[in-house]
């Protein structure tokens, strides 16, 4: 701790070993090294740093987002969740393959039976299975942990003292959760596509409406569905982010988000509550099957996207209002 090496004197590539000349010639190194240190700090240090302060804040924000994404995608917990999400389409595919080999095709849902006829339909089948709960769990874990987790660890105060900037940090946290939701959805689709192509015949696709489109257009429709689902997850991420700014316990924010996801889906399923249903976020998540109609059900999907945007704006604003005025005492 007593070494006096300044950035100028340290050799960056070779980390110094324990036996440094500093220990052996203290009287020799001290005066010669202290002098430049003082001169640098007083004379050059501040003006040099003042320049980048004015320009390049966009680059700095991208760097913070990069750091955030690095944390998210390298964290074992998140990798495990992504692995589970990627495994589900494979499991569905294998099960369907076994079932269709047995010749027991009747009874299953229309999309499920369609998979046996065309591997591409496995993508939609997998999304139908994952979108109501498992995908929201993954997004809620990342977004719900985003602020509360940092507060709980105490790292939030150091990020803000850096200073990361409250609005900037919140925006980066949200962008990170949105990217994670998109990546998770795309991963499910990719896993399903590969599994479907390997296990089932692939060719022109018969849509829910009965008409047939070529394979290439089918891939475009998969992309549309992925985009729509990711938008729904982005809306959920805004809700989880809001809850995350309200607590210092990340598991609380995550659990609260998931309770809301489940409860709203239950409410949406009660016929007597039909008037409320359009206002509930999960009601719109399965709207991605509009991409399977001919022509695409752009009206319905557009309305879903508007609901997602409304949720994102309302929850995002509330999160911002809360986070920028909050006393950070953790």
């Amino acid at each position: 701790m007593s070494r006096l090496d300044t950035p100028a004197q340290t050799r960056p590539e070779t980390p110094p070993t324990e036996t440094q000349p500093t220990e052996t010639h203290p009287t020799e190194t001290r005066p010669t090294e202290t002098q430049p240190t003082e001169a640098e700090t007083v004379a050059n240090g501040a003006p040099e740093r003042a320049a980048p302060a004015r320009r390049g804040t966009a680059g700095g924000t991208l760097r913070l987002l990069g750091s955030e994404l690095g944390l998210t995608f390298r964290r074992p917990r998140n990798i495990a969740m992504l692995a589970v999400l990627a495994a589900v389409p494979v499991i569905i595919g294998v099960v369907l393959r076994v079932v269709s080999d047995d010749g027991a095709e009747g009874g299953a849902g229309s999309i499920i039976t369609a998979v046996a006829g065309n591997g591409m339909m496995l993508t939609f089948a997998a999304l139908f299975v994952l979108v109501p709960l498992l995908l929201p769990v993954a997004v809620a874990v990342v977004a719900g942990d985003s602020v509360a987790g940092e507060a709980g660890m105490g790292t939030l105060r150091y990020l803000l003292a850096a200073p990361a900037g409250r609005t900037r940090l919140l925006a980066v946290k949200y962008a990170n959760a949105v990217v994670f939701g998109l990546a998770a959805t795309a991963l499910v689709a990719a896993s399903a596509l590969i599994t479907g192509f390997l296990l089932f015949p692939v060719g022109p696709i018969t849509l829910l409406s009965g008409s047939t489109i070529p394979l290439a257009e089918g891939l475009v429709r998969v992309l549309v569905a992925v985009g729509y689902v990711a938008a729904g997850m982005a809306a959920l991420a805004a809700l989880a982010l809001l809850l995350s700014t309200l607590t210092e316990i990340s598991i609380g924010a995550i659990a609260a988000t998931l309770v809301l996801v489940v409860v709203t889906q239950v409410l949406g399923a009660i016929p007597q509550l039909a008037p409320v249903e359009p206002y509930l976020l999960p009601s719109w998540w399965l709207g991605f099957d509009g991409a399977l109609r001919a022509p695409m059900a752009l009206d319905d999907m557009g309305q879903g996207l508007l609901v997602f945007a409304a949720y994102a704006v309302v929850c995002g604003s509330a999160a911002w209002a809360r986070f920028t005025t909050k006393d950070i005492t953790a």
């Binding site: 340290t10 302060a53 680059g59 944390l71 900037g165």
Partner: peptide, 16 residues
Amino acid sequence: RIDAADPTSDRRTAAH
């Protein structure tokens, strides 16, 4: 990570 949070710090000199 902390260095990345400071908008004025220079990423090129970060490792150093």
